[in-house]
């Protein structure tokens, strides 16, 4: 018990490390399941980055749709990235965060377009931003935000 109290810093570190790993990977698995399921549901709604041109009278309505998502890093991923900072190379632990943020943002945009009865989204653009610039520094919040926006097209029957 005394040893634990003497090395309180270390104990807290290990605890956060384990919490970060368990809950981080749990959240990631759940999120990916949800992403894959929703992507399948909205598969018919086409999203293209092309401008697109339509014959006169075919488009009933067009509107700006956007979706954004913010995903936070967890303690485990942060440590992994810190170690990467020493060795260099791909920061694999952050790759899934960027992927999740991007896909979630596109999904939300598609959901918004779907609600408006759109058949497709054209001219889709993606942007990412970091909230909390110094993600690897202590007491700093590290998270990634992705914004997807495009033009939703509602066709005439």
């Amino acid at each position: 018990m005394e040893i634990l109290l003497e090395n309180l810093n270390l104990v807290i570190f290990l605890l956060l490390f384990i919490i970060g790993y368990t809950f981080g990977s749990l959240a990631e698995k759940r999120h990916y399941r949800s992403i894959i399921q929703r992507e399948a549901e909205l598969l018919k709604l086409a999203v293209v980055t092309a401008e697109g041109s339509f014959p006169a009278g075919q488009v009933k309505e067009s509107a700006l749709v956007s979706g954004s998502a913010v995903i936070s890093i967890d303690y485990f991923k942060r440590i992994l990235a810190t170690l990467r900072n020493i060795f260099g190379g791909r920061v694999k632990s952050y790759e899934s965060l960027v992927d999740r943020a991007r896909r979630e943002a596109i999904l939300r945009m598609k959901e918004q377009a779907h609600k408006q009865g759109a058949k497709m989204v054209i001219n889709m653009r993606l942007e990412t931003a970091t909230i909390g610039r110094n993600a690897n520094q202590k007491k700093q919040i590290g998270s990634i935000e992705a914004i997807a926006y495009g033009t939703a097209i509602v066709m005439n029957k």
Partner: peptide, 13 residues
């Protein structure tokens, strides 16, 4: 997304 298991990566580093 890389398929390497995070714990394997941790162990290596």
């Amino acid at each position: 997304v890389s398929t390497t298991h995070p714990l394997v990566e941790l162990l290596w580093m």
